[in-house]
């Protein structure tokens, strides 16, 4: 297999790897705390995509069982609903903490905060 043929049918997995990579890179590289949280969200979304796509079956219907037929696996969807809720709670908590950090240090820049803390 060459070129595009190698990737055909793997679009979800490719998007998963890209999103996870972009998310992790943002978390490591960004100095701004809010951007780090955005990176975390991108990272998690990539992961959700991977899990949801694992239940996908080409040409299959939703799992409302009605006689014979091909149905997608509904379990990953349920899992991701739960994981999304977890992700939202984490984001909310992270933003609340960021507000506290900002109130205290007047900046969201990781390096500045570190400098102020070392100066204490």
């Amino acid at each position: 297999m060459t070129g595009i043929g190698l990737f055909a049918g793997h679009q979800y997995q490719i998007a998963f790897v890209l999103l996870v990579g972009v998310g992790l890179y943002t978390m490591i590289d960004a100095k701004n705390l809010v951007k780090k949280v955005i990176g975390l969200n991108i990272f998690q979304v990539g992961l959700f995509l991977f899990l949801v796509s694992s239940g996908y079956l080409a040409g299959a219907g939703p799992a409302i069982i009605d006689g014979e037929g091909r149905y997608v696996n509904p379990l990953p969807h349920v899992l991701i609903l739960t994981a999304i809720v977890v992700g939202v709670s984490l984001t909310a908590l992270a933003l609340a903490l960021i507000i506290r950090v900002y109130d205290e240090y007047g900046t969201l820049d990781e390096e500045h905060i570190q400098e102020v803390m070392d100066g204490d």
């Binding site: 998690q44 992961l47 992270a94 903490l97 109130d103």
Partner: peptide, 21 residues
């Protein structure tokens, strides 16, 4: 209640969430 603990918690949150993910 101070900035230091909020910052430590945020750092823990970012690293811990990646771990759980």
């Amino acid at each position: 209640g101070d900035g230091r603990s909020a910052y430590a918690a945020l750092k823990y949150l970012l690293v811990g969430t990646v771990g759980a993910s």
